[in-house]
Simulated scan of single mutants.
Amino acid sequence: MIEDKKQKAEDRIRYTTDLQRIIAVSSGKGGVGKTNFVANLALFYASLNKRVLVLDADLGLSNIDVLFGIAPKYNLKHVLLGEKKIKDIIVTGPLGIMILPASSGIRELTKLTDKHRLKLVSELDEFDIPFDIFLIDTGAGISDNVLFFCSAAQETIVVVTSEPTSIADAYALIKVLSRDFQERHFRILVNTARSEKEAFDTFRKLAIVADKFLGLSIDYLGYLPFDPHVKDAIIAQKGFIAMYPNSNFAKRLAGIGKKVLDNPLSEVKGNIQFFLKKALRVG
């Protein structure tokens, strides 16, 4: 117990000096646990005294606020319509996590216009609330919105499961980002794996086709095990690692979170204005 407390204290000190990180988390296929991963990753970083900002970038079907049991009054729709500033819509989740909620059931926002994108660039450029980690929970698939947010971030984590459709769709996402947006670095997280072997076999299948057809060497971030209690945490609208801190899932998520912090990409892009303008191909 004493050693555990000592280790946690050392972790808090160690992980409070990193540079700002802006990370998109995406997937080729829906239903792979992407948003649940983002929510728990945010909780882990917040437990290390990180200032965490989460953008729910699934603009038509928001979920982050639901997972945290929050009912925001305003969301990105109000920002894009010019009714609110970004700092006005922030809601605070557990451990002080700052959340920029999206709208749900708003068809018009499932495809951002150039006007909407420029508005978002302007708002984020003026955003003056400090953060250490900015997690962008994109939608699934290869829609314009997903590609926009992935290409805008400094780093992209692609969540995949062992299902053949998930692997195929993850490859499609990587292919489009590589071909059309010149993205060259992807980190792969295998979710709901039944074993370490299953997880690595899943990654290997994706890595082989990415290397053969795209000339890409993708990074294996690790895996999260299947755990039937994940559903219980979602129903309870609480983070899984908060409800089951000693589970194998929680321990592996902590390892993944530390790995991301310990290994920033060497070609990290610039500030918010820079990387969003890169995605827009303006300026």
Results as ranks from 00 to 15, higher is better:
88 D>T: 05
65 D>N: 12
79 V>W: 01
94 P>Q: 06
61 L>C: 08
70 I>S: 02
68 F>P: 07
71 A>Y: 13
92 T>C: 06
90 I>R: 06
82 G>A: 10
77 K>F: 02
61 L>W: 01
85 K>C: 11
60 G>V: 06
63 N>F: 06
88 D>Q: 04
91 V>A: 12
66 V>E: 00
85 K>Q: 15
61 L>E: 10
79 V>D: 05
67 L>S: 04
69 G>Y: 09
89 I>R: 09
84 K>R: 14
81 L>H: 12
72 P>A: 11
70 I>Q: 01
77 K>D: 03
92 T>F: 08
88 D>Y: 10
89 I>N: 04
94 P>F: 00
88 D>M: 10
75 N>C: 13
93 G>Q: 04
79 V>P: 01
84 K>F: 13
81 L>V: 09
66 V>R: 08
73 K>T: 14
77 K>A: 06
76 L>D: 00
71 A>G: 06
69 G>T: 09
72 P>E: 03
92 T>M: 11
69 G>H: 04
68 F>H: 01
88 D>P: 08
84 K>P: 11
94 P>I: 08
89 I>K: 07
61 L>M: 10
61 L>T: 10
78 H>M: 09
86 I>K: 09
68 F>G: 05
76 L>I: 15
80 L>V: 15
75 N>Q: 05
72 P>C: 07
67 L>M: 04
84 K>G: 13
77 K>P: 00
90 I>Y: 12
89 I>H: 08
70 I>K: 06
80 L>H: 05
83 E>A: 14
81 L>D: 12
92 T>I: 15
75 N>I: 02
87 K>W: 15
71 A>S: 14
85 K>D: 15
90 I>S: 11
78 H>C: 04
90 I>T: 07
62 S>M: 10
64 I>F: 12
79 V>E: 02
93 G>L: 03
68 F>M: 04
76 L>P: 02
71 A>L: 07
72 P>M: 03
95 L>P: 01
87 K>S: 15
62 S>K: 07
60 G>N: 09
94 P>R: 02
96 G>P: 15
83 E>P: 07
67 L>T: 03
78 H>R: 02
70 I>L: 14
79 V>Y: 06
89 I>F: 08
91 V>Q: 07
67 L>F: 01
62 S>E: 07
92 T>H: 12
74 Y>I: 14
85 K>R: 15
62 S>N: 05
79 V>L: 09
